[in-house]
């Protein structure tokens, strides 16, 4: 069943067209990848969907509700959450509180009850905390619950950011380069984590990533952006063989020479030259 429909989405910064005519129909529990060179509009897409920017043209509808013009917190509340390319945790807060913040909309007590710590407050806080601890346990972070988030190693910070994004029980999760700055071994673990996440939570995932290995292994469908325009879409197999994609990533002249033996991304630090399959 379709959960998110993006139609003819476009946005520009001054005279620069960052994204134009973007379409996407996302089904429930689907895993879609968005790839493209730096500056191709991938993060802009996420910023539009999550409400940081207000789309200049087009529409985003989530279960029939128009999201353009809504505040980011209402969009999160409706069921779309995200992570960031450069981790944005609440550094001075504990790991537990990072997750509990995301349960803001789930509390069922009034401001007065919060001020006096009476009524539903105690039972609600206990419920929230137990739920948060459960989530942290799933992500293997329970023993670090009382540590400030800034003390976590990089890999765990990434994981905590995902736990936080899942804390509000979203239906759609937007992951912005979760593999940035990770080595191949860490990427392998991240792929497992994402596969596991997808099985455990009833969510659809949109993944922006430069690591081709991740995108190819995880995504059912891939969209390729270049200068804000969708230049290709299809299954990983189709994308891998699309001359237009290869041209964007590798340049025009010699794509024929390399196309056959590699899906090199063109990014030295993320290149993965082993053939797939």
């Amino acid at each position: 069943m379709e959960i998110l429909r993006i139609k003819a989405l476009g946005h520009d910064f001054g005279g620069l067209r960052a994204l134009s005519g973007f379409d996407l129909a996302l089904d429930e529990r689907e895993f879609v990848g968005v790839i493209g060179p730096n500056g191709s509009g991938k993060t802009t897409l996420f910023n539009l969907v999550s409400g940081i920017y207000r789309a200049a043209t087009g529409s985003i509808s989530f279960r029939g509700r128009e999201l353009v013009g809504m505040s980011p917190s209402s969009i999160a509340h409706l069921g779309i959450t995200r992570t960031f390319q450069n981790i944005r945790l609440f550094k001075e807060l504990t790991v537990l509180d990072n997750v509990r913040v995301a349960k803001y909309a789930a509390v069922r007590y009034s401001g007065l009850e919060a001020l006096l710590h009476v009524g539903r407050f105690r039972t609600e806080e206990r419920r929230l905390t137990e739920e948060a601890m459960e989530l942290l346990t799933l992500f293997g972070l329970d023993d670090k619950a009382e540590d400030p988030a800034k003390n976590l190693p990089y890999g765990l910070q990434r994981r905590l950011e995902m736990a936080r994004a899942l804390a509000a029980s979203p239906n759609v999760l937007l992951l912005d380069e979760p593999g940035a700055g990770m080595n191949p071994a860490e990427i392998g673990r991240l792929i497992q984590l994402l596969q596991w996440t997808k099985e455990h939570f009833p969510i659809a995932i949109v993944l922006i990533e430069h690591h081709m290995k991740m995108v190819m292994e995880l995504c059912q469908r891939i969209k390729v952006l270049d200068f804000g325009v969708t230049i290709s879409e299809g299954t990983p197999m189709q994308i891998r063989q699309d001359p237009k994609v290869i041209e964007v990533y590798l340049g025009k002249k010699d794509y024929a020479a390399v196309a056959g033996r590699t899906e090199n991304t063109g990014y030295g630090h993320t290149a993965d030259n082993r053939p797939h399959g």
């Binding site: 980011p72 959450t81 609440f90 913040v101």
Partner: peptide, 18 residues
């Protein structure tokens, strides 16, 4: 917690549903 998260990172706070 909303108050503290605003201090730490307002955008992330907003996007976490606060």
């Amino acid at each position: 917690r909303g108050v503290l998260s605003i201090r730490e990172d307002e955008t992330a706070s907003e996007l976490s549903g606060v």
